[in-house]
Design a protein around this nucleic acid. Structure first.
Lengths: 228, 228
DNA sequence: TAATGTTCAGACACAGTGTATGGTTCCCTT
DNA sequence: AAGGGAACCATACACTGTGTCTGAACATTA
């Protein structure tokens, strides 16, 4: 059927990682596109162009457009889980620990804004992505439950409330606020405000006491972190 | 161009509201379809069939599929705003007032689950719907801000925190939890749990005190409401 | 050399959206 | 009663996007 196969060995610009596996190229091209464009405006053709990959190759590695996003999300969240790991076993001041965890979340979202916004926005149009996100949020909820259960003070305060429900509500509030921040919706686009509000919510619900404004109390031993 | 126009006067089944304006028919057919089907799986053709309306008529009244949803959402939320009106000027016990407001929200979502889920899920694929939903949530946030500002106790507790941010976070937590409930995601699919958790969040954040379990204290003067 | 795996270009079938055309019916006005 | 226009219809079209398929060019390894 083809009239004249002028197949060239696909010569790529030297600047691009030409030898990299196509699979990786597709993933990172998508991740890159997602930095500026919403997932729903992203056609497979766009990805093909950006990744310099043929249509056939794309479907050789991924069953669908959504599958690519799914993998990107898993990667991002896994990386986030790792960062949040020390959060659970935190033996320091609970409020400081909470705030640190919230800030880690903000950073994770800031660094992976495109991908995370994409899945949040695409849940409505894909069953698989919806399930995936639910699953990821459940992981965070599990961590929060563990955190609460191992904290007598919080347990006491919560009384006979459904601990998992409380943990889940906190998780989802975070999801929503981080998303809004990533979308640039005020007032959450200000990371300071975002972290304050979220931390305050956790502390208020778990301990009842109002959040101890950390910016007002410049303790010497804040939290050892990399440069901000 | 047309070979043979055999146009019949469109005879509808007597059981259906035949004389109703097509516009209304389109709206209610969509609303009905949304009761069982997700918006993204709903094609214009589906709506045409259900409403017994021609394609041309559809586009005569609405510029797009999304516009129909937009109108349904406006209707539902307006109805909800009305129901939530007394919530602001509540002079009763603040906790009871809060709980009542939360419950009203739950009811609104229960009664309009299809439509509300649809817009939440379709934000990602339509700029207009995204803006609309943002706008609606801002209305709720405005109400919450007013509520907080006129409450000395809450104001004091919040200290120098960004009141609007706190109000918005509460609003969005509600949005998320109601949505999850509508989607049947546990543990929020249990209205009792949902209301408890949300109320507790509001009370904890605004007043610091843990929620007074209402089911444990069967006061005679609960809240005068229609039959449950 | 032959088999196998990777990659390509291109075409295809299908579905969905929004627009356009032309025709019908019915009501309201003149 | 004529006729003008609004509401309505069926049909077809142009376009965009998805996922599949074909056939061929390579490259690697057996």
């Amino acid at each position: 059927m083809p009239s004249k196969p002028g197949a060239q060995p696909a010569r790529r610009s030297a600047a691009e990682p030409a030898s990299t596996g196509l699979r990786e190229r597709i993933l990172s091209a998508t991740r890159e596109l997602l930095r500026e464009r919403r997932f729903d405006t992203l056609s497979v053709a766009d990805i093909l162009t950006a990744a310099e990959v043929s249509r056939a190759s794309f479907y050789f590695y991924f069953p669908s457009r959504q599958a690519v996003l799914g993998e990107l999300v898993r990667d991002a969240v896994a990386q986030g889980q790792q960062a949040a790991a020390p959060w659970i076993g935190g033996s320091q001041d609970p409020v400081a620990a909470l705030r640190a965890g919230v800030r880690d979340g903000a950073r994770l979202w800031r660094d992976n804004a495109g991908v995370l916004m994409a899945i949040v926005e695409s849940q409505g149009s894909d069953e698989g992505l919806r399930a995936l996100w639910l699953e990821q949020m459940n992981l965070f909820t599990d961590a929060a439950v563990a955190r609460i259960e191992s904290d007598p003070q919080a347990r006491r305060r919560l009384g006979d409330m459904d601990v998992r429900a409380v943990a889940a509500s906190l998780t989802w509030m975070g999801e929503r606020l981080y998303y809004l921040a990533a979308a640039g919706v005020p007032p959450f686009d200000d990371e300071e405000v975002l972290v304050d509000v979220l931390t305050n919510a956790w502390v208020s619900i778990l301990y009842g006491r109002p959040v101890t404004p950390p910016s007002r109390i410049p303790r010497a031993e804040q939290r050892k972190d990399a440069a901000d």
